[in-house]
């Protein structure tokens, strides 16, 4: 397996452990950790710090009935949480976000396709399919944007991103990612701002030869 060189920023892993990332970002971070041993170990370090905070937060006495209530339920039947397995290029958390449905690619023009997994006012997460050599559509992110490569690779002003690599772009970054020749590039992309599609079509129609 190739060596992953672009990782989840540490503060983002801490916020993920604390459950304080928007859902769209959490899907991307969970997917990256599924592919990346280094970030899994870093996440475990954050969980360990969380465990110490839990241990050392002041205890508050629980009511006498609580223990009995819980013990009485140990044998109760329950439905185990479904486990979503990695399928081809798609890690478990992507399969979970698809909720069992197949991928439904919608054409955006120039051979670029997308499937929106989730979108609300806290952000959106989608799969993007970019044909080899094609520029990644500029969807005008106005917050932080995370892009995780699941297949193929892309290249922009900041470097080359292959399978498992995570790019973190803030609004200050002006970049034009282009899918590298060869295999089509499939990415999992999330933003924490609202959707902005107006810029998409005109931009796609422009010939882009910037690299």
């Amino acid at each position: 397996m190739r060596v992953i060189t672009h990782h989840t920023p540490d503060a983002m892993l801490a916020a993920y452990a604390a459950g304080n990332l928007p859902y769209a970002f959490a899907v991307v971070v969970a997917s990256h950790v599924s592919l990346c041993e280094q970030c899994r170990a870093a996440l475990e370090a954050h969980q360990m710090i969380g465990g110490v905070v839990l241990e050392e937060t002041g205890a508050v006495g629980v009511s006498a009935a609580l223990k009995d209530d819980i013990l009485a339920q140990l044998d109760a039947p329950f439905t185990p949480e479904p486990v979503f397995e990695r399928t081809g290029a798609y890690p478990g958390p992507v399969m979970e976000a698809l909720k069992g449905r197949p991928i439904r690619w919608k054409t955006l023009g120039m051979g670029v396709r997308q499937d929106i997994l989730s979108a609300d006012r806290n952000g959106s997460v989608r799969l993007l399919y970019i044909p080899p050599g094609q520029a990644v559509p500029d969807h005008g992110h106005n917050g932080v944007e995370l892009t995780l490569v699941l297949q193929g690779s892309f290249q922009d002003e900041t470097g080359r991103f292959g399978v498992g690599d995570l790019e973190v772009a803030d609004e200050a970054l002006e970049h034009t990612p282009i899918a590298v020749e060869g295999e089509a590039c499939i990415c999992l992309a999330a933003t924490d701002g609202s959707l902005k599609f107006r810029a998409l079509m005109p931009r796609l129609l422009q010939p882009i030869f910037r690299i």
Binding site: P9, A18, N20, V53
Partner: peptide, 18 residues
């Protein structure tokens, strides 16, 4: 640190403050 792991800080705040 406690606030961060209790989920009281965003990732931007964690990176700026802790």
């Amino acid at each position: 640190i406690e606030k961060a792991y209790l989920g009281e800080l965003t990732h931007q705040e964690i990176s700026a403050q802790t």
